[in-house]
Simulated assay, not measured.
Amino acid sequence: MTEARFTQRPAIVTGAARGIGRAIAIRLASEGAPSLLVDRDATGLAETADKCRGEGTAIETLVADLQDRAAPRRIADAARTAHGAIAVLVNNAGVEFRGNFTAHDDAAWDRVIDINLSAAFRLVRELTDDLAATRGAIVNLASVAVVGFAGQAAYDASKGGLATLTRSLAVEMGPMGVRANSVAPGFVDTEMLKEAPDLAAVAERLVATLPIARTGRVEEVAAAVAWLASERASYVTGHTLFVDGGWMRR
């Protein structure tokens, strides 16, 4: 087990059923964080919870759709009931729509923005008092998509917005003792990448040009999130940490 750094520092992780979210949940659990894990996928969420409980920490789950405006209040209430005031909020949940920007109808655009960006804002708003009381930390999952790629206008906009929201939160919440940072993964070996063959082809071509010429591992992203959420990063706020194999050196 990793050194316990989050004992009595309850956490919420959204999008915890698979991929990067699952890895973050497991990493925080290994460092002692009692957690509420959130996702729409009940089966995947239960699998993640079992892995986290194997680390010896208290884990609860909540099945929720973050496009539902009522979800942030449900999440906040469930987390407080289970673990008390929340000290770590990881906004990881994300969806994608693949297609030319003219193919983004209003429903597709709204779904991506609601889940990837607006839900993060609403969760922070719901948990502001908790985070201030615990002098907590927010870590939002952005992406190298902030640079803009073809075929994913809503996703890119949501991740760029999330990085900017993070900086605004750092400014407004710093006087409360709350830090806000984001992690921007590059091309990481996840289900989302595998489910988009056109993006996977782009990734294969671009990864070959990186200083670290491979796709990332979910555990590497989780390590960055855990660092930013912990007191090891106590003087870091308003920052976007690119975990990308050197992509953003460009």
Results as ranks from 00 to 15, higher is better:
3 E>C: 01
3 E>T: 13
11 A>G: 11
17 A>L: 07
25 A>Q: 05
30 S>K: 06
31 E>Y: 07
32 G>H: 00
33 A>D: 07
37 L>G: 08
40 R>A: 10
49 A>C: 09
50 D>W: 00
51 K>G: 10
53 R>K: 14
55 E>T: 06
69 R>G: 07
70 A>I: 02
70 A>Q: 12
79 A>R: 06
79 A>C: 05
85 A>Q: 14
87 A>L: 03
89 L>V: 13
91 N>D: 09
92 N>Q: 11
96 E>A: 09
96 E>C: 07
99 G>C: 04
102 T>H: 14
102 T>K: 09
106 D>F: 13
107 A>W: 10
109 W>H: 04
110 D>V: 04
114 D>R: 05
114 D>K: 06
119 A>K: 01
126 E>A: 15
135 R>H: 09
144 V>W: 01
149 F>N: 11
153 A>R: 00
155 Y>T: 03
156 D>F: 01
157 A>S: 15
158 S>L: 04
161 G>I: 01
161 G>Q: 11
165 L>N: 04
165 L>S: 04
166 T>R: 01
168 S>N: 13
169 L>T: 05
171 V>F: 04
176 M>E: 10
178 V>E: 00
181 N>K: 09
183 V>Q: 07
190 T>L: 02
197 P>L: 13
197 P>I: 13
207 V>K: 10
209 T>F: 06
216 G>W: 02
218 V>D: 06
222 A>P: 10
223 A>R: 12
224 A>Q: 01
225 V>K: 03
226 A>M: 04
229 A>R: 01
230 S>T: 09
230 S>R: 10
232 R>M: 04
233 A>Q: 12
234 S>F: 01
235 Y>F: 15
236 V>M: 06
236 V>E: 00
248 M>E: 07
